[in-house]
Design a protein around this nucleic acid. Sequence first.
DNA 1: TGTACATCAGTGAACGCGCGTTCACTGATGTAC
DNA 2: TGTACATCAGTGAACGCGCGTTCACTGATGTAC
Lengths: 199, 199
Amino acid sequence: LRVNPEKKEEKERVTHALLRSTLRLAAAHGFASLGLREVARAADIAPTSFYRHFADMEALGLALIDELVGRFMRDAVARAEASVGGMAEELDALTNHVLSAVISDPELLRFVLAERVGAIPSFRAALERQLAVLSDAVRGAIDEERAADALATPAYVADAAVVLLFEAAGKALDRGVEHVPELRERLLSQLRLLTPRSP
Amino acid sequence: LRVNPEKKEEKERVTHALLRSTLRLAAAHGFASLGLREVARAADIAPTSFYRHFADMEALGLALIDELVGRFMRDAVARAEASVGGMAEELDALTNHVLSAVISDPELLRFVLAERVGAIPSFRAALERQLAVLSDAVRGAIDEERAADALATPAYVADAAVVLLFEAAGKALDRGVEHVPELRERLLSQLRLLTPRSP
DNA sequence: TGTACATCAGTGAACGCGCGTTCACTGATGTAC
DNA sequence: TGTACATCAGTGAACGCGCGTTCACTGATGTAC
């Protein structure tokens, strides 16, 4: 049996509504506190319809990480690679992408920050994989400017940069958008120490 | 009316049991998922007795941060100040204190890691204050070795060091105690970049 | 000393409520022939 | 073309359960005089 593409789209629309509703509710009260009925209510479907999309809340969370967080990370890397210039410009593009999420998608940012170190092991593992994408991009950017005979940038440098980047974004979430410029300066000062030569 | 010191001690014993039970349960399923009845059950008191100690779970969490997390931070700083030697030895003592909690109190570590960036604003604020204690100690340690005419260490250096320290502890929690030595080396490499001169 | 009263941690019964899950059903759509 | 059947997202009723909270009570202890 073939599937009607319209029907398929409609199902994906509802699935997406479940993911976004979850992000919104999780930002307010924490993912761990959410129930299937609460999420279904927010997505305007009957509680029992939840099971047409996910087996339970953990499966929903993993899908959320794969799709929404995955897209965020891919977009970040794409923006960095599309930037013109050297290491400094690429790192700037990455930094801007993450810091601008403080306005454009604070709920996603809170979810990543919280679940990366939260109580659910499968979420921690999935988010570590997602953040590794950013870390690789940072490493690539730094390596672009290293001397031809220098050693490749060690992973711990790029990993530290990513951790400090999200730390800055977390502070921005708490203190408000108006503090983004000073937090960006602060972050750049930290990154300058991590990346041996230049800006 | 005066209070019987024995009675007071007994009450504090039960209060402490509530805090420890909460830490244990939160490490397994996340603080946000905990209920008052679940915590009371784990502390071996009737659900209604919970109210003799705290108004709700949020009040309990704030007391937990004040008392258990507070003690942890004070102990860390005390160990650093008691160490003999210079900056390197003080930072080593701080690092050892936090990393040894991977064995001695993994539940506290998970709580600090998770709630520092979790969904409850009052917890984030309270934990930021607690971590500032460590950050100040790190700054003090670095300043000890700076040249007499050099500028004082900026806060962003010490803050980054503390963030990376807890990041290492979080990785150790996930990967197991046997990875602590390599994670410590990795952390020290990162700290060397942040602290201009020496180890 | 005895007696009346105050304090307070802990309790069991009871409440109304929202939860996750099961089940059988509907209705739209696609397939077989 | 019509007819019988399969698929599948969505649903409402119903279930048993644990939740937070209230209430009035107990019993140990301290205070007043």
